[in-house]
Each structure stands twice: as C-alpha cells, then as structure tokens.
Amino acid sequence: MGIIKASKLIFDYIRRDEEDNIEEIKRAIDDVSLDIEAGQFIAILGHNGSGKSTFAKQLNAILLPTEGTVWIQGLDTSQEENLWEVRKRTGMVFQNPDNQIIGNIVEEDVGFGPENMGVPTEEIWRRVDESLNAVGMAPYRLKSPNRLSGGQKQRVAIAGVMAMRPQCIVLDEPTAMLDPNGRKEVVKTVHELNKKEGITVLLITHYMEEVTDADRVIVMDEGKVVMDGTPKEIFSRVEELKSYRLDVPQVTELAYELKKEGVDLPDGILTLNELMENLMPKFDGHLSNEEALENGGDHGH
C-alpha cells in the first residue's frame, strides 16, 4: 500500500432545506480507487467541477467519505482518533493565497502549524527557519503578508505546511489566481521540495504546462478517474483530453496535428526540444538549394 490509498471512494454533497430534509444530492466523487506511491510527483487534472478539489479535501480529512475508505500511510481518515495524525501527515495548500495566511508577519504564519501541534518553542524556530529557506522566502520573514506578491504568498503558505513536517503535500489549484510568473515560481518550488526533501506532491491544476514534469498524471471528470498515466501517455490522447474540457501545450498540439496529416512523429511530445529532435530529420532532402540560400538572407519577409 502506498502513502495514499483510496478504495471505492464516494462522496456526496447533500443540500438540506430548513426542515433538514434532503433537497439535493450531488455526487462529487464517484467510485474512485487510487494508490499513490511515496516520493512521487502526481498531477491531478480536471475542469472546474470535475471533483478534483473535493478529492483533495478527502486526503486531509476536511471531508470524510460518504462510502469507501481513504488511508494516509495506513491510517483510515474516517476514524476520529486518526484525525490530527492525518492532518500532520498531509499538508494542504489552497487556491486563494490570502485566505490561508493567518499570521500578520510571515515567520509567525509559518510557525502557526507547529504551534497548534504543541511543538516546543526552540523546535518551532528551527522548523520555521528551515521551511522559509526551503521555499526561498527567508529574506521576507519579517514582512507583512499583505506586501507580498501572489506567488510569494503561496510560497509562504507552502512553508507553513512544510513546518508541520508532512509526508505529503496536497496543493489544491495553488496557481489559479496567480499570474504566469507567480505560477512558475510556485511550481518550481514544489518540484524542488519533491526532489530535495522527497516529499510526495499532489498538484491539482488545470494548467497543462504545470504537469509535463510530473511522474504521473491523473485526469478526473464527473467525479471519476478517467485517465491515469505518465504525462507522455496522457498527452498523446489529445482528442480525449479535449473532450474533458482540457487542453494540451501548443507544442503537443502541433505535433499531434502534424501526425494526423501523415508526418511520422511519436505520440505525446511535450517539449520544444523533443519536437525539434523528431521534426528536424523530416526536412532532410526537402529543401532545395535555392531556399537554403534565401534562408541565409532576411528573417521572414
């Protein structure tokens, strides 16, 4: 059994009217079984409303299964006595950077988790120092969170989770409210934590560029896991992704389009380099001398 395991997980949102009668039941997670290996970088993709955020909240016992079970390192999340242990082991980072920072000063916010866990003062300081260094926010430790950029705020939130020494971090669309620079900043930080500290990462997102380096990509739709594989495998199924309201990086789409027109390229090209390596040989013998000469001249026209 891996670090996270879900078996036949079902979750219903139940809406009740004033008299507590059930008004509406919405199935947000529908029979999901997953096993996640420790140390991996997992990306969960899905459009808004696909159930991916609901799934994330199951991993931290913020929501409990309606049916089925979730285990974090063998601990059943629905057992009352496991609650705090589960929350210590899986840290959560949420979408809105403003709504998860509690402290009025960066370092105090990072210390919030360990304070709640009853960690002794000296140990809190050690953890705060380490976590701030790990996310590269140490120079800002005495600043007010209100003065930081979105990307920096999310890094503080990640540091706050790191200070609790979790085995696994779940990030629920941490980049949805950031600009492209902030997005890169956060994704880079998370990758570093995964590589250097060996922390298992579950990144939930709908930005395709962010998942190309993941070890495993899981696609959710209508509360079900509909695709599960390496980025290469997933991105070779362009039409299928589009049917789930998702997208592929432009390079991948171009390669796919060319392949459809008969150009012999491998499936699931993810990067510019990969495309070049495979595309360049195809031009051999197609270029006349005249064109090569013209090419030496101006650019474009």
Binding site: F112, N116, G118, P120, I124, V161
Partner: peptide, 18 residues
Amino acid sequence: MAMEARCYRGGEGRTKMK
C-alpha cells in the same frame, strides 16, 4: 478550513513561537 488543515483546535495544548 485552512486553520483546521493546519491542526488548529483552540488554545489547548498549543505552544508559542514567541
């Protein structure tokens, strides 16, 4: 939700950073 996720459960058993 964020506070709960970070193990906040009131003042009891809480230590202080400062």
